[in-house]
Structure formats: C-alpha cells, structure tokens
Simulated assay, not measured.
Amino acid sequence: MASFTSLLSTILLLSFLCFTPSPVSASNKVSVSLYYEALCPYCSDFIVNNLAKIFQNGLISIVDLSLVPFGNAVVTSDGSIICQHGKGECLLNAIEACAIRVWPDVQQHFPFIQCVEKSVEAREENGWRSCFQATGLSSEPIVNCYNSGYGQQLELQYAKETNSLQPPRQFVPWVLVNGQPLYEDYEKFEHYICKAYNGVLPKVCKGQRLTISEQTRANNGDKVCRPGKNLT
C-alpha cells in the first residue's frame, strides 16, 4: 500500500511539472524599442498613458522593452548636444539615460521614467526630483551619473543608435516591434506585440484584432514630434 501511495505521488508530481507553464525565455519575447525625447508631449503621453499599460495588464511578461531617450536631438561637431526642446530636455534625457544604466531592470527604471514624464505632462519644471521618493529609489547614483558627465556619454551612445536606425527615424515617439517601425500606428503597439508573439498568448491578447483604418493613421500622424520643429 505504501509503495502504491509513493507511486501515485510521483505520478501527480510529474503531471504537475509537465503542465505547469514555464516562464517566457528572453529569446521568445517580443522586442519593443521606444525612441523618444523627454519633453515631446506626445512621447510623454505615450509613456504615461499607453506604454505603462503593459506593466498593468501582464503584457510585459512577453516583452523585451528598450527605452532610448535621445529623439530628435542633434550632435554638433564639437560633441555637444542640442535638444529639440532646449536645455531642459537635454537634462531630462540624460537623467533618464542614467536611470536606465543604473537600474537596468526595466521593472525598476520604467516607474521612475514614467514618473518623470508625468511631471512633464503637469508642466512641473523640477517635478522629476520628487520621483526618487515616489519610487523609493536613491537619487545619489543618478545625480553622480549626471554630474560626472557620464549621462552625456550615454546620450552620445544613444545618438549613434538612433541615427543608425534602418529605416531611419522620421519622428518621435518612434516605436519598433521586433525591429519593425510602427510609424503613425504606434499607439496600437499592443496589437502588434500580440501578433508577433509565437507562444501562448496572455489573456490581454485574446479577442483583440488588429484593425487600423486610414483615418487612424491620419489622426496619429498629428501626434508626433518631427525633427527641426521646436515645439516649446
């Protein structure tokens, strides 16, 4: 009887192991890249009100998310950076670049960046400083990163990455899913993620269909920051 019980327990254990879903491996995740600049109002809106949703609905579990805060900035011949919306944008781009480097886990740096962009939406010039307390993260490594000039170096690296995109970036927010730009359809990024994923789809994907009309494309075309146009 004892041996039968032991055998039954083994069978149940093996069944549990066989049918328990395993975590999504990094190689199976959908790559999503966002090229943006801190003071573009459409970038702020996308980060705060669209991109943040994937952390709430579980879609982040199948996504490898990369944020690149440089946007439409220009690097001059002497290596300095001119940002589309002025020095304040250069500051925040570098601060967010430092956050990404100091806290490489997207689950850590995204809440901070979302908080910064919320302060941008609220037009609070120094509101980003309160984001350390709001997220429970230390300000010291970020301040050191920026004051040491390392944030500038990170921005120069992001400049090379942004300017080498093929096809070239046309505006921001510039969203890529598995390396393919979504152009004006960037707000539909969740649909593209679900379409690109090869594994068992999360609940949020079920029942969704990718239907994008020409009218949607036309409307979204107005919600971008294009190079050479200062929107401040």
Rank of each mutant, 00 (worst) to 15 (best):
M1G: 14
A2K: 13
F4D: 14
F4L: 15
S9M: 14
S15T: 15
S22F: 11
P23V: 14
S27K: 13
S31Y: 02
L34D: 08
L34Y: 12
S44M: 04
D45V: 00
F46K: 07
A52N: 15
A52Q: 11
K53H: 13
Q56K: 15
V63E: 01
L65V: 10
S66P: 07
P69F: 11
G71V: 10
S77F: 08
G86R: 09
K87M: 08
I95R: 03
E96D: 12
E96L: 05
V102D: 01
F110T: 00
F112C: 01
Q114G: 01
V116C: 09
E117N: 06
S119K: 15
S119I: 00
E124I: 09
W128A: 12
W128T: 08
W128F: 15
R129K: 15
F132R: 07
T135M: 06
L137W: 00
P141M: 03
S148I: 07
Y150W: 04
Q153K: 15
L156H: 01
A159N: 15
L165Y: 03
V177M: 06
G179M: 05
G179C: 10
L182M: 01
E184W: 02
E187D: 09
E190P: 02
H191E: 15
C194M: 05
Y197M: 05
L201A: 11
K206T: 13
I212H: 04
E214I: 09
Q215I: 13
N219M: 14
N220F: 07
G228R: 03
T232V: 11
